[in-house]
Computed example of a mutant assay.
Amino acid sequence: MLGFSQFHANTDPSTESKQPLSTISVKENTQNTSSVDLENKRYTINELNNQVINVKNEQVVNAAPKKKSAMLNVVLIRQNPELKYGCEVTSLAMVLNYAGVKTSKMDLYRSVRKDLDPLIKSPKGDIIRWGNPADGFVGDMTGRRAGYAVFDQPMIALINQKLPGRAINLTNQPFDRVLEHVSAGYPVVVWTTGDYRLPDRPEGWYHGNQYIKTPLDLHAVVLVGYDPKYVYLNDPLSGKKQVRVGKQQFISSWRALKSRAVSYK
C-alpha cells in the first residue's frame, strides 16, 4: 500500500513556536493559480503537487526487491499420478506447507471451488461450452475426464480457508512486486505454461453468455527464488525442484497468462 505526505498547517498552540501560522499563507491571483508561503519560501500549488507525485514515484521505485537474490527451500510435491490437471492446488500445497499449514494436494483438491458446467464439444471436437476458471476449477482435476484450470480468486479463497485473512493476491502487480514478496520470505504460486514460454494453444468457449478466451497450455508452479538473470521454480508436473528459467523469458509467459500470482503474508 502506497502512502504519501500531506501538507497540514499545525494549529496546535503548543507547537506554534515551531511552525508559526504567520509563516504560512495561501495567495491566489486573478489567473486562478495559487501559491503557498512556507518557511519564508513561496511554492506554487503545482510545485507542491509535483513534490507529492515525486514521493509516490519514489515509493514505487522502493517496492523493488530488497535483495539481489533469494532462494526458499520449499519442499517439492508432485501432482501425478493422482491429479493430472492439479498443478494449481499442488503448487498451493507446497506454499501452505512452507507456511506451516498441515495440508495436502488431495485436501486442497477436495476443498477448492469448482465450476461444474459440463464440457460440450462440436462434432469436429472443438470446445463449444465449458466452465469459467475464474469461478472454480473447470473439468476433472484427476484426469478421468477432461480438465483445465482454476484462476486466482478461488485460490485466494482457499488460502483464506487455511490461513484466515492472510491471503495475498499479487495478480496484475509488477513482477518486481512478486519478487519482493519472495525476497521477504514467501513463496508464490504463479501461472505460466508447461515450457515457461509464450502460450501457443489458443482456445475459447462460452460459459453462459460469456465468451472465455484462454490458452490450453496453461500451467502453475511455485516461484521459490530469483537472481539478476534467472527465476527458480518448483514444478509439480515435471517433479523438479528449483528449476532455473531465464527471468525475461518467464516474465513474458507469466504476462501472457494475465500476470496471475497468489501467496500469503
Rank of each mutant, 00 (worst) to 15 (best):
V150G: 05
N50M: 09
K56A: 10
V60M: 14
P164M: 09
K84D: 00
R166G: 04
A70R: 05
D152P: 00
A146Q: 06
G194D: 10
G225V: 02
S25Q: 11
K105W: 01
Q210E: 14
P202F: 10
S35P: 04
L108H: 03
I77F: 00
S25K: 12
V243D: 04
K241W: 01
I127R: 06
Y211L: 10
S183T: 10
K229C: 01
V150K: 08
R42T: 15
V95G: 04
Q248G: 02
V182M: 09
E203H: 08
P81C: 02
K258V: 11
M155D: 03
R110L: 04
N73F: 05
L237P: 01
K56Q: 14
Y186W: 02
M94T: 06
L119T: 07
L2Y: 15
V222N: 06
Q51A: 12
L216N: 12
I156E: 06
D227L: 05
K41M: 12
K84A: 09
T214C: 01
H219G: 03
P118W: 11
N172W: 08
Y226T: 04
W205Y: 06
T15N: 08
E39N: 15
N32A: 13
S111T: 14
Y226A: 01
P81S: 10
M106F: 06
G125K: 13
R166Q: 14
D227A: 07
D126F: 12
A93W: 01
G143R: 11
R145M: 11
N169E: 10
